[in-house]
Amino acid sequence: MMNMTGKPVSDSRTVQTRLVLPPDTNHLNTIFGGKVLAYIDEMAALSAMKHAGGVVVTASIDSVHFRSSAKVGDLLTLESFVTYTGKTSMEVYVKVEVEHVATGDRTLTTESFLTMVAVDSDGDPKDVVPVLPESKEEIELYESARVRRLNRKR
């Protein structure tokens, strides 16, 4: 739902679960970091497209932190949402958790922030509406986004 003042973060929230399969892993049977990055980029695009109501491109992937690994048979749950908006750009937070099916234990495996830019049919940047944070986590990420944005511009 779009209004003149903006869109709530919840409109862009996207959650997806994936099974780690043998072709996704390295010689240690843990998922390739590049595979996780591809999932993260896709999730960020989905959230940004929901917010922008159209096509987006990736401008940057920054502050990727791999905290733990996932092995064959584990489940990866990815969650993403728009945390901050500029004129044409959106910062998107993506969190990845691993669930060990045998134990049910869940662990944060990866966190990342990406910048996505809305584009029109000619590939030119187009304006996006502001994002409206609602929950405590969303407000904290929104307020800290200005610092991350300044760091990106350096």
Score class of each variant (00 low, 15 high):
M1R: 09
M1S: 13
M1A: 14
M2G: 11
M4A: 13
M4E: 15
M4R: 10
M4Y: 10
M4L: 13
M4D: 15
P8M: 10
V9H: 06
R13M: 12
R13S: 11
R13N: 08
T14Y: 15
T14E: 12
V15T: 15
V15N: 07
Q16A: 11
T17A: 14
R18P: 00
L21P: 06
D24G: 00
D24R: 01
T25W: 03
H27C: 04
L28P: 00
N29F: 03
N29M: 05
N29A: 10
T30E: 00
F32N: 00
F32D: 00
G34T: 00
V36D: 00
V36L: 01
Y39C: 02
I40H: 03
M43A: 14
M43F: 07
A44H: 04
A44N: 07
A44S: 15
A44G: 15
A45N: 09
A45F: 09
L46K: 11
S47Y: 05
M49F: 05
G53W: 04
V55W: 11
V55C: 10
V56D: 02
V57E: 12
V57P: 10
T58I: 03
A59E: 04
A59I: 03
I61R: 08
S63N: 13
S63H: 11
S63L: 09
V64K: 08
V64N: 05
F66H: 03
R67I: 08
S68G: 11
S69M: 07
S69V: 12
A70W: 05
D74S: 07
D74M: 04
L75V: 05
T77E: 12
L78T: 01
L78K: 02
E79G: 10
E79D: 08
E79Y: 05
S80V: 02
Y84E: 02
Y84I: 02
G86L: 00
G86N: 06
K87C: 00
T88I: 05
T88K: 01
Y93N: 11
V94I: 13
K95F: 07
K95N: 10
K95L: 12
E99I: 09
H100Q: 15
H100R: 14
A102Y: 05
T103P: 11
L108Q: 13
T109N: 15
T109F: 03
T110D: 06
F113C: 03
L114T: 09
T115I: 14
T115E: 02
M116S: 04
M116C: 10
D120I: 01
D120N: 11
D120V: 04
S121Y: 05
S121W: 05
G123E: 06
K126Q: 13
V128T: 02
V129Y: 07
V129P: 02
P130I: 01
V131G: 04
L132S: 07
L132E: 12
L132Y: 06
S135M: 02
I139C: 07
E140I: 08
E140P: 03
Y142R: 03
E143K: 14
S144D: 14
A145Q: 04
R146L: 08
V147L: 12
R149T: 09
R149C: 04
R149M: 03
N151C: 09
N151L: 14
R152V: 09
K153P: 01
K153N: 13
K153Q: 14
R154K: 12
